[in-house]
């Protein structure tokens, strides 16, 4: 449309509904010239507004603790974990009337931050949700979240925030393939350069997650777009 995003009157964007990575934040902030704030909520608890990052720190989301009690439990044993440890987030709604929930297991992974915050709020913060147990893939015994792969992709120049993760099994070995769109300009570049990019992403994913994967660069706009929750994983294993 020929509009420079920086000419828009946008100052702040509030983003929620599904996990998004820290590098995605950097990308949004740089491209739009805004502050990107994470908001948390789920309909079972009430909807958006259960927790929010303050613009002062953008580091952890203050939980509205006068209405919702957060707990962190071990994702397998469901034993309560000491404050500060990472696990599954559980909420009890202490003021809700029509549809209260008692110790609702969200399947979201986070930890509670009890340090005081420069914004002045006394509410504990929950760390930005890095993944859901529903989204967690176990690849050759390693727990992998789509947001971790996104984090790597967003740190690489020339790739777009559109990707698909394909998990399959050959014999007894899990395979992981990441398809990611590259920018128009890069796609028309030399093959050698595309090969270098592929190798770089593979190395960085291996370094971060400890699993090797196949990276396939695809044409701009070739990965299907979704409304609402993005479909980012195809698991072809029959297990």
């Amino acid at each position: 449309m020929g509009i420079d995003p920086k000419e828009l009157a946008l100052r702040v964007g509030v983003f929620g509904d599904e996990p998004w990575s820290e590098n995605m934040r950097q990308e949004i902030q740089a491209k739009l010239g805004i502050k990107a704030i994470d908001i948390y909520g789920l309909s079972e608890i009430i909807g958006p507004g259960v927790a929010i990052e303050c613009i002062e720190e953008q580091k952890g989301l203050h939980v509205m603790e006068d209405h919702f009690l957060p707990e962190i439990v071990h994702p397998d044993t469901f034993e309560p974990l000491p404050l500060g440890e990472k696990g599954e987030l559980v909420f009890t709604t202490i003021t809700k009337e029509a549809f209260p929930v008692i110790r609702y297991r969200t399947k979201d992974f986070s930890r509670l931050i009890t340090d005081s915050c420069s914004c002045g709020r006394s509410f504990y913060r929950m760390e930005k949700v890095t993944g859901r147990s529903d989204d967690m893939m176990i690849i050759r015994g390693v727990n992998v979240f789509p947001s971790q792969i996104e984090h790597v992709l967003m740190s690489v120049e020339g790739v777009e925030p559109h990707y698909m993760i394909i998990v399959d099994r050959h014999g007894s070995l899990d395979t992981l393939e990441v398809q990611v769109e590259v920018s128009e300009s890069l796609f028309s570049d030399e093959i050698k350069q595309l090969e270098n990019l592929t190798k770089r992403i593979q190395t960085e994913i291996k370094d971060l997650l400890g699993v090797s994967c196949k990276v396939t660069l695809v044409e701009p706009k070739s990965i299907q777009r979704s409304e609402g929750k993005a479909q980012r994983v195809i698991d072809r294993r029959n297990i």
């Binding site: 704030i37 908001i39 958006p48 507004g49 929010i52 303050c54 613009i55 509205m64 209405h67």
Partner: peptide
């Protein structure tokens, strides 16, 4: 709580 959230943002 949503007004608080927007204000915090």
């Amino acid at each position: 709580i949503m007004a608080r959230s927007l204000n915090a943002a």
